[in-house]
Design a protein around this nucleic acid. Structure first.
Length: 887
RNA sequence: GCGAGAGUGGCGGAAUUGGCAGACGCGCUGGACUUAGGAUCCAGUGGAGCAAUCCAUGCGGGUUCAAAUCCCGCCUCUCGCACCA
């Protein structure tokens, strides 16, 4: 047989696999099942990146390994194909995004097939397929039809939403409005970054310093009607259920931080109704009333409600801060301060979120001129407006305790506000304590209360518990939980995304009445219009679909005229549930057959980049929980085990990018070294999860191994297929057998632990050993080929065939090992004196302590060094080492 | 600033979890075969030393018969979050 030539054998085996549908997966698993999922790629115009095959090879190895162990393996692939680039391309060239997308998918598919991954290609799907997004739209309808029952902590049909009698009394329209306010999918006026010059709405990351990243055009923030998804309702469950998942603690923590659960209290500070004269009386009256009425769900306009995680520092509150967008700003501003406050708020409105959270910047704010009364001590406390308080978190207002909060401390220093310490760090804190008491630093940890009225002397945790109770009894506060997580802004002003299955009612003058109507699931899919002009310049931040042909845009139902929703869904939508559709990709009756879902879910192994550690995984988990609550899926979590592959850097240790000129093209690597070499190298580079630099020399190194493995079994100088003369039908020697079984064991356990780099090292050792052997037992060679198969499947198939097998090795049983064959008769043991290596001895593997010690004492070098010394202690670890402790 | 992870030869990385540091690969050195070598094969390769030996897992302490591994204190790098009260 000629030399190893991947350019010939790789396409050959890919064709065999494709034609015999080798990796086709049954509708339902037979026996043990394993669902192995890759994060499906966005098919960009640049083609595959070497980062893609990293995770894909890892999962492919796991799949091929498990097939050989008789497991029913589900391993699908598809395309996350919506996205802005195709739309931008359309604007430039007029090419429909679908055409661009299909072309790019074609290229990605070719590249993935070239690498020999064992996907069941019959299950291929793209998020842009009408038959797919029909069900994405269906799930949106489920979200739209669901409200979150906080008491039961689960999503329920909107029809089951209890309507308060007061609302019901107002009539049908009020009830509709009430329902709309409670749906998991709801509408909101939210500011967007509108760039007039580019004629598009930009994401926050695309705007820096008030201008667009691309082109540097001015960006304005405009309120626009948006769709939101109430993910915050599921915050608690999204956090709690992380516990049952087999994910790295790092990723779980990332999600926990993102959800950002905090516990504390809401407290009402009395602000009264204006006239200063009767204020003290009014306050007393208010407090008395609250004692009877309790803490109201919604704050009245006589109070400023704040949220704090440190109710134990109430006595240290020296001022209050409200966000510039707070509804009470105007009311709380005194005439003298009015001009200043108005200007400050306008300035804040112009700043983007990013500008406002700019680090290292000085704190800004203005005094409103009014005071709120601290309910624990009756102290009038000045109210400031400052943009370091966010309207979107908590109640948009805080009590500031500069002695025990760094941000408040900075602000107080800036504006010379009083600082009152109410938590004593204790004697142990030393100088830090003095600094705190002198107002030089803020102390944010727990301690013991001081200057806190009846609470003085209580340790922080106890104080928190106690005051929460007391506030509740007095009706001036209550325990509260807050999350950093925000509701999900779910609409985009783009063409190339899933249309919403929503109609807006129009009046006779073609204006929206504000009422909307969800399409019936039977009316799905809503396809995108095929005839669209993409060059239309935009002068308003309206979605491109506003310019869709009228026959698409306007519809009539039950005699009423409607306009379709023209926002589209974000790219995240399609990737939120693709793992379900893979299981039943052609189902025209439902998003998935429950029998199939129950049989295959959850995903047993999910591999992808860490860049999706938060958003994608959180969004998908959220959708899954809603589907679970509404009975479409049978378990609450979709991804049981998650592994994040590390990024592959360029040869220069920098991130790969066109501008750095260090991009490695998989096509070229395959052309020069073969797909098996690429696969093997990506696995050999280091641990899957580690960040590691590319090395072409490394690729050529593993290619060298493949060449040697080839020559170990085949005669590469013969014209026809011919085994190497050393390969013979003989029994392996004890040494050969030991190497064989050691290798089987190591490769098996390494694959199970996804430690692919060491598995490859063990196979290299095997080849290095057997290349030196004059005779290579055929049985050993065959089992080696099976071990190699998950890593380098093309070569393995070729060698397997050359060894006389007619069928693919895909379903050959995985080799087993025998511990007895691995065991050595004698082992070499290090002998130490005082922990230093002084000699080595050969002893029987099962030698007991006495035998080992005797052998060690007999070792000439050791014996010499022990002369004239007192052996204080001898440590003997059977099968490991001997150590003499001498004086 | 907060959080997480990581520091081992010239390089990528191993090390049964406290038991011979440096598996495997790259690179390098020497040799063989060659018109040729960026092919293949053989030998060597952490540092210092002629050697015995000594020194070596970011730095400094500690525990232990024994530490890359455990504990304490630092330093550096990477990633994530970034005024969330």
């Amino acid at each position: 047989m000629p030399r190893y030539n991947p350019a010939v054998i790789e396409p050959k085996w890919q064709k065999v696999w494709e034609e015999s549908r080798t990796f086709a997966c049954p509708r339902l698993p037979k026996g043990r099942k394993l669902y192995v999922l890759d994060m499906f790629p966005y098919p960009s115009g640049n083609g595959l990146h070497v980062g893609h095959p990293e995770g894909y090879t890892a999962t492919d190895i796991v799949c091929r390994f498990n097939r050989m162990r008789g497991v029913s393996v589900m391993h699908p692939m598809g395309w996350d194909a919506f996205g802005l680039p195709a739309e931008q391309h359309a604007k430039k060239t007029g090419t429909h995004p679908r055409a661009t997308t299909e072309k790019n998918i074609g290229n990605f598919r070719r590249q993935l097939k070239m690498l020999g991954f064992s996907y069941d290609w019959d299950r291929e799907l793209a998020t842009t397929d009408v038959s797919y997004f029909r069900w994405t739209q269906f799930i949106f309808l489920v979200l739209f039809d669901t409200w979150f029952d906080a008491t039961q902590q689960r999503g329920r049909p909107i029809a089951e939403l209890p309507i308060p009698t007061g609302v019901a009394a107002e009539g049908e329209a009020a009830m509709d409005r009430y329902r709309d306010e409670h749906r998991l999918a709801y509408q909101l006026e939210a500011p967007v970054n509108w760039c007039p010059a580019l004629g598009t709405v930009l994401a926050n990351e695309e705007v820096t310093g008030g201008v667009s990243e691309r082109g540097g055009h001015p960006v304005v923030r405009l309120p626009l009607r948006q769709w939101m998804l109430r993910i915050t309702a599921y915050a608690d469950r999204l956090e709690k259920d992380l516990g049952q998942l087999d994910w790295s603690e790092g990723i779980k923590l990332l999600q926990r931080n993102w959800i950002g659960r905090s516990t504390g209290a809401e407290v009402d500070f009395f602000i009264g109704q204006s006239s200063d004269a009767s204020r003290a009386d009014a306050y007393e009256g208010w407090k008395r009333d609250r004692g009877h009425t309790g803490f109201p769900t919604k704050p009245g306009d006589d109070v400023l409600r704040i949220y704090t995680t440190r109710p134990d520092t109430l006595y240290g509150a020296t001022y209050m801060v409200i966000a510039p967008e707070h509804p009470l700003v105007e009311r709380l501003t005194s005439p003298e301060q009015s001009a200043k406050v108005r200007e400050y708020c306008q300035q804040a409105a112009r700043k983007s979120d990013l500008d406002r959270t700019d680090l290292a910047k000085e704190k800004t704010g203005v005094f409103t001129g009014s005071y709120a009364i601290n309910p624990v001590n009756g102290q009038p406390t000045p109210i400031w407006v400052a943009d370091y308080v966010l309207i979107s978190y908590g109640t948009g207002a805080i009590m500031a305790v500069p002695a025990h909060d760094t941000r408040d401390f900075e602000f107080a220093k800036q504006f010379n506000l009083p600082i009152v310490a109410v938590v004593d760090p204790g004697e142990a804190a030393g100088s830090a304590r003095d600094d705190l008491l002198a107002g030089r630093v803020a102390f944010i940890a727990d301690g013991v209360a001081v200057n806190s009225g009846p609470y003085t002397g209580l340790p922080t945790p106890e104080f928190k518990r106690k005051i929460a109770e007391d506030l509740a009894t007095q009706g001036i506060g209550r325990s509260a939980v807050n999350y950093k997580l925000r509701d999900w802004l779910f609409s985009r002003q783009h063409f190339w995304g899933e249309p919403f299955p929503i109609l807006h009612e129009l009046d006779a003058a073609c204006n929206r009445t504000g009422r909307m109507r969800a399409l019936d699931p039977r009316e799905l899919p809503v396809d995108l219009p095929t005839e669209m002009a993409f060059d239309a310049a935009h002068d308003r931040p309206e979605p491109p679909l506003d310019k869709a042909p009228a026959d698409w845009l306007y519809v009539t139902r039950d005699g009423k005229r409607y306009k379709r929703e023209t926002n589209t869904m974000p790219q995240w939508a399609g990737s939120c549930w693709y793992y379900l559709r893979f299981l039943d990709p052609k189902n025209g009756k439902g998003l998935i057959d429950p029998e199939i879902e129950q049989a295959w879910m959850p995903v047993d192994l999910y591999v992808g980049g860490a860049e999706h550690a938060v958003l994608h995984l959180l969004y998908a988990r959220f959708w899954h929980k809603v589907l679970y609550d509404r009975g479409y899926v049978s378990m609450p979590e979709p991804f049981q085990k998650l592994v994040n592959q590390g990024m592959i850097l360029g040869e220069n240790n920098e991130k790969m990018s066109k501008s750095r000129g260090n991009v490695v093209n998989p096509d070229e690597v395959v052309r020069e070294y073969g797909a098996d070499a690429l696969r093997l190298y990506e696995m050999f580079m280091g641990p899957l999860e580690a960040v590691k630099p590319w090395s072409m020399d490394g690729v050529s190194g593993v290619r060298g191994f493949l060449d040697r493995a080839w020559r170990m079994i085949l005669d590469d100088r013969a014209e026809a297929v011919q085994l190497n003369a050393a390969v013979q039908d003989v029994e392996p020697s004890a040494d050969q057998n030991r190497m064989l079984h050691k290798t089987i064991k190591a490769v098996t356990t390494d694959i199970e632990q996804m430690s692919f780099n060491t598995a490859i090292a063990r196979m290299m050792e095997f080849a290095n050993f057997f290349l030196k052997e004059e005779t290579r037992p055929r049985s050993a060679m065959e089992r080696f080929v099976l071990l190699l198969a998950p890593f380098a499947p093309h070569m393995a198939e070729e060698l397997w065939a050359a060894l006389g097998h007619a069928k693919t090795l895909t379903y050959e049983p995985w080799p087993t090992f025998d511990e007895a064959a691995i065991r050595e008769d004698t082992v070499e043991i290090p002998v130490q004196i005082c922990g230093k290596l002084r000699g080595r001895i050969q002893v029987p593997a099962d030698a007991d302590k006495a035998v080992m010690e005797a052998a060690a004492r007999a070792e000439p070098k050791v014996a010499e060094l022990l002369v004239g010394r007192t052996v204080v202690k001898v440590i003997v670890v059977p099968g490991r080492m001997v150590n003499f402790v001498v004086r």
